[in-house]
Write a protein that binds this DNA or RNA. Structure first.
Length: 738
DNA sequence: CTAGGGTTAG
């Protein structure tokens, strides 16, 4: 009897097979329909049943229609649109039915609809919300992160005298804390007379997620004192707090507590324990637990990968990745982002390329954002541009993360115009998007434009954060805008409520130092309310280099080494300063000292992308296949430059080399020169040469690049550790202010 | 018919 043509043939139950035959209407029995609804497994079954009910007229019996609606609304999010249509057919839906619709929307991908239905209910029906309505509608407000909506609902709750309802209060705690308003959350919490386990748990995890893990742990202790029994969810929050505080001792105690009190462990709790061990740096404990876990999911795997990558054990991370199920993109993301964040962009791109060959898994937004960040680090413009095209072709909407990554990638690859294009193409921008664009303008030396953008940002009422100010002050520094820098720095706390951190102080010292206000810079450092970080002293040291202030440099250097004793950057800067002052004996003493203490200068490395392939050059590198050609090109360049009367600036030599010839030769081996020579050989004459250097460009290379840009009529875009240099027609965009 | 939990991105 079950034939292909029978629309109900696939309903999987048949206590009474006859009623499954829809066209045999006489035999359907209204009382069995509700049972049948409960057994419907999917949308298709529900539709078949709906058709059946229409034919039998049962649909026009409100209780039956309501029953069908409930089943549709709660079965799966994809049936929700259908449920709405059914809802519209119900003559005067009762409160329960309204509640169900709000509930379904609140946990759907369109939670805003939950709020709209609630409003519709208030206006169009005679129904008034009850104690069940509010938890649903508060959840909807939480999902859309609308503080305003939630506050309005909270007001209604109070007016309707539901203020002491436990369920509603618990919902409100969750609502306020997930929007970061911990004070309001706590206020609701403290007014609950008989707190239940959910009240405690909501408040504890609220504190953890709101960045106050100490308070979370304190609340946990208070909870035990008040004789509330912690459960699984409590312990997830506690472990998460330990992870955030990097408190291995308490974390271990929590694991022990779980054991002792027989709290049953599920996957989520195991993962929380795993995460705690990883964040606290105990990979041994994590591994032991991981191996013991019978059930593992994607979170367990990615936690282990991330853990190994963070401690620098990439082989172990890779081994985990190699044995895990790979159909989930998150696994790939964990590895790509770990590599990217730990300064291994090439490895990150290698994984991305591997992913492209994998047919079953496609990159998502997170993958693309991480990969773009890797491209930005490397200056891999071709791949970065390819990803941008990919995003467009796939119709992926630019979210804030992707927008930020694209702007950053284009800026760091030297395509400021493209970065601006992306920036102006989006209609909404969050603080990170704005900050990234300000940083882009800053690194290309457009300080004024960066400041203008900052003003525009304020018109859109997006609040600047610490990152915004770092970038803004950087912009002032790169463009020599001393007064503006001072002004913004002084406004930070009083006007914008952003407390200056050591990065901001470092920027400010840099601004003052470059402008020659060394005394004011020193004064600023002395007045700092926080301990000056290495970068603050580094900035002062940099200023000393410009002005050849050996005495102050020695002081700054020794202070720097107090905070960070193996900072080789400090030695390098000081030796530069000695070299500039012609104190070669000091230079060699410093070099000797570095050798003895095992501190090696980070080798200079420049890279250039040609046809999508990144070529890297180290000082005096001859490992490149075209090495011979590169060096003869370099000889040609040097000869042509010399004919213009240029004399190389030997103060940029780090090593004391006796023979004059050797000095000059060592300068000519600098990685950026090798990369430029390679670019001249391999790139079309119309193409600018784009180079990324890991350290700051040396003064001689800077002068030489200027001359090359004129002699060879080539634009050269060189990104160093601090900013961009755009060489064109014999000049540099930094106006020699760097 | 109600509320709370773990990983990956700037």
């Amino acid at each position: 009897m079950a034939t292909l043509g029978n629309p109900l043939a696939s309903v999987p139950i048949s206590s009474n097979p006859t009623i499954l035959t829809a066209n045999n209407e006489q035999k359907s029995n209204p009382s069995t329909v509700p049972i049948l609804i409960d057994k419907c497994a999917n949308k298709k079954h529900l539709k078949q049943l709906h058709a059946h009910m229409l034919r039998t007229g049962l649909f026009f019996d409100p209780p039956s229609a309501t029953k069908l609606f409930t089943a549709c609304a709660l079965s799966s999010p994809s049936s929700l649109d259908y449920a709405c249509k059914v809802f519209d057919q119900i003559p005067r839906p009762n409160l329960y039915t309204w509640n169900t619709l709000i509930r379904a929307f609140a946990s759907s991908p369109k939670p805003i609809q939950g709020l709209l239905v609630f409003i519709q209910m208030l206006h169009e029906s005679q129904r008034f919300p009850n104690s069940y309505t509010f938890p649903f509608v508060i959840k909807a407000a939480t999902e859309v992160s609308s503080l305003l909506a939630g506050q309005a609902i909270h007001g209604m709750v109070m007016k309707a005298s539901f203020g002491s309802d436990l369920f509603i209060s618990n919902s409100l705690i969750h609502f306020y804390s997930s929007l970061g308003d911990l004070d309001s959350a706590y206020l609701v919490f403290s007014k609950i007379v008989e707190k239940d386990i959910v009240s405690w748990n909501s408040m504890i995890s609220g504190f953890v997620q709101g960045g106050s893990p100490e308070e979370a742990l304190q609340l946990f202790k208070r909870m035990k004192m008040e004789n509330a029994r912690p459960n699984r969810v409590t312990m997830v929050g506690v472990l998460s707090a330990c992870a955030k505080r990097i408190d291995l001792e308490f974390g271990r105690w929590a694991c022990d507590y779980i054991e002792r009190n027989g709290i049953d462990i599920n996957l989520i709790l195991s993962n929380a324990m795993l995460d705690m061990y990883v964040k606290c740096g105990s990979l041994e404990d994590a591994r032991r637990l991981f191996d013991k876990m019978e059930e593992k999911d994607i979170v367990s795997w990615t936690t282990m990968i991330d853990g190994y990558a963070k401690v620098g054990d990439y082989d172990a991370a890779r081994r985990v990745f190699d044995v895990m199920p790979r159909e989930d993109i998150t696994a790939w993301n964990a590895l790509i982002s770990s590599y990217q964040q730990n300064g291994k962009p090439k490895e990150a791109l290698a994984i991305f390329r591997e992913l492209q060959l994998n047919k079953n898994t496609k990159p998502n937004e997170v993958t693309l954002a991480s990969t773009l960040a890797a491209c930005a680090q490397l200056g891999a413009m071709d791949l970065g541009g390819w990803i941008h095209v990919y995003i467009k072709k796939q119709g992926i909407k630019l979210n804030f993360h992707i927008t930020t990554s694209l702007i950053d990638m284009y800026s760091k690859c030297g395509h400021l115009e493209k970065a601006l294009e992306v920036f102006y193409s989006v209609e909404r921008r969050d603080v990170f998007v704005w900050s990234a664009m300000i940083a882009g303008l800053a690194m290309h030396g457009h300080g004024r434009a960066a400041i203008d953008l900052f003003s525009k940002m304020q018109e859109t009422k997006v609040k600047p954060n610490a990152v915004t100010f770092t970038n803004l002050l950087c912009a002032c520094s790169h463009s020599g805008l001393v007064d503006e820098g001072r002004l913004f720095f002084n406004q930070m706390r009083p006007v914008y409520g952003v407390v200056p951190g050591s990065k901001h102080y470092a920027c400010m010292v840099d601004i003052l130092g470059r402008a020659g206000c060394l005394e004011e810079a020193v004064e600023l450092i002395e007045k700092m309310p926080i301990v000056p970080s290495a970068s603050v002293w580094g900035a002062l040291l940099g200023a000393c280099r410009i002005y050849g202030n050996v005495e102050l440099a020695e002081m700054a250097c020794s202070r720097l080494l107090e905070t960070d004793s193996n900072n080789h950057g400090a030695y390098v800067l000081l030796s530069n300063i000695y070299a500039k002052a012609g104190k070669w004996d000091c230079v060699s003493r410093l070099r000797q000292h570095m050798k003895v203490s095992g501190l090696e200068k980070e080798p200079g490395c420049s890279s250039i992308e040609v046809n999508g392939i990144i070529h890297e050059f180290l000082v005096g590198d001859n490992s490149h296949p075209l090495s011979t050609e590169i060096y003869s090109k370099l000889d040609e360049i040097v000869a042509r430059i010399k004919s213009t009367g240029y004399v190389s600036d030997e103060s940029h030599l780090l090593q004391f080399v006796e023979e004059e010839y050797m000095k000059e030769h060592a300068l000519n081996l600098h990685s950026e020169k090798l990369a430029i020579a390679y670019g001249l050989i391999r790139m079309e004459p119309s193409q600018p040469i784009r180079i990324v250097k890991n350290l700051r460009v040396c003064g001689d290379c800077h002068s030489v690049a200027k001359i090359i840009s004129k002699l060879y009529n080539r634009d050269i875009l060189l990104r160093d550790r601090y900013r961009f240099h755009h060489f064109s027609g014999g000049n540099c965009s930094c106006m020699d202010y760097w």
